[in-house]
């Protein structure tokens, strides 16, 4: 499906800079940002930037990939818990996929993710790489 540029543009603060919302009352951080804290109903928040290291809590290796992802398979996707306790999902890159495992320490890096639409507009965002890399 063709994605309009405004749709990508809206996501830049998260995709490029890992901006999250931290609520005053609960002190909890949410990524992506929310306008209401699901735990307290609080709406008072400040923008915080997520830490860039954490470890894998679960993962998979996509071996049968749809369409535009086909040329990248097999690729690993993981959920990592960052050092502040927030979790996010991203591809794991610069790694032999067979070595990815739960507990592996990762760093979040700015990378090319995919191309969108007929014009092939490149979308950038975050991926995980091994922390020691």
């Amino acid at each position: 499906m063709t994605m309009f540029s405004s749709r990508s543009w809206r996501e830049y603060p998260q995709r490029y800079r890992l901006e999250a919302s931290k609520f005053k009352k609960s002190g909890k951080t949410y990524f992506p940002p929310r306008s209401i804290d699901p735990e307290t109903g609080d709406t008072e928040q400040e923008m915080v930037v997520l830490p860039d290291t954490g470890k894998i809590v679960t993962y998979t290796i996509i071996r049968v990939a749809p369409g535009m992802w086909g040329d990248q398979s097999p690729y690993a996707i993981a959920i990592a818990e960052l050092t502040d306790g927030t979790k996010l999902m991203a591809q794991m890159t610069d790694v032999d996929v067979e070595t990815v495992k739960i507990g592996m320490e990762v760093r979040v890096e700015f990378r090319r993710i995919q191309t969108e639409g007929d014009a092939g507009v490149i979308s950038y965002g975050y991926k995980f790489v091994p922390k020691w890399y």
Binding site: W69, I77, G125
Partner: peptide, 24 residues
């Protein structure tokens, strides 16, 4: 769409992640 599919997650992939967590 923005935080899973955008990164190349598929439905088998999402359940596979649950399976790995359950196995661990």
């Amino acid at each position: 769409q923005e935080y899973e599919v955008f990164h190349g997650a598929t439905f088998p992939g999402l359940y596979a992640m649950m399976a790995h967590a359950h196995m661990a």
